[in-house]
């Protein structure tokens, strides 16, 4: 039983890591601010989500599992707000969204 749980959490954490990689690659490759924001939030919710899921399986007590879940929710909330604010500021700051020519 323990090894199945172990493997499952390992797999989840690796998937999470993959999404972080996707986020970073997106950050470097995308042409302008607004696309990069998508990459950023991908790494946030999905990448961290899988890592958190993997860790919850291994979490000792219920309290620490709940704490890790809370951390994920907080990151979701503040990440989304930050992305929204940056996008609004960039738009007002005169940065034109990228158009495929």
């Amino acid at each position: 039983m323990a090894s199945v749980l172990g493997w499952a959490s390992a797999a989840l954490v690796l998937v999470g890591a993959f999404f972080f990689l996707a986020g970073t690659v997106g950050l470097l490759r995308f042409p302008d601010v607004y696309n990069r924001l998508h990459a950023l939030t991908k790494a946030d919710n999905v990448g961290l989500g899988f890592v958190v899921l993997g860790l919850i399986l291994q979490a000792g007590s219920l309290l620490s599992a709940f704490k890790i879940l809370l951390i994920w929710l907080l990151v979701l909330a503040s990440g989304a707000t930050a992305a929204h604010l940056v996008a609004t500021a960039a738009l007002r700051g005169g940065i034109k969204p990228w158009k495929h020519r």
Binding site: R36, L40, V51
Partner: peptide
């Protein structure tokens, strides 16, 4: 090119930092 790019990268670092800390914790 623009400061918002830099700031959102710093925001991404925050999230990655949280992930690293959680992994180190266990």
């Amino acid at each position: 090119p623009t400061p918002p790019d830099r700031m959102l990268t710093a925001q991404l670092f925050g999230t990655t930092g949280v992930a690293i800390l959680l992994l180190l914790a266990s």
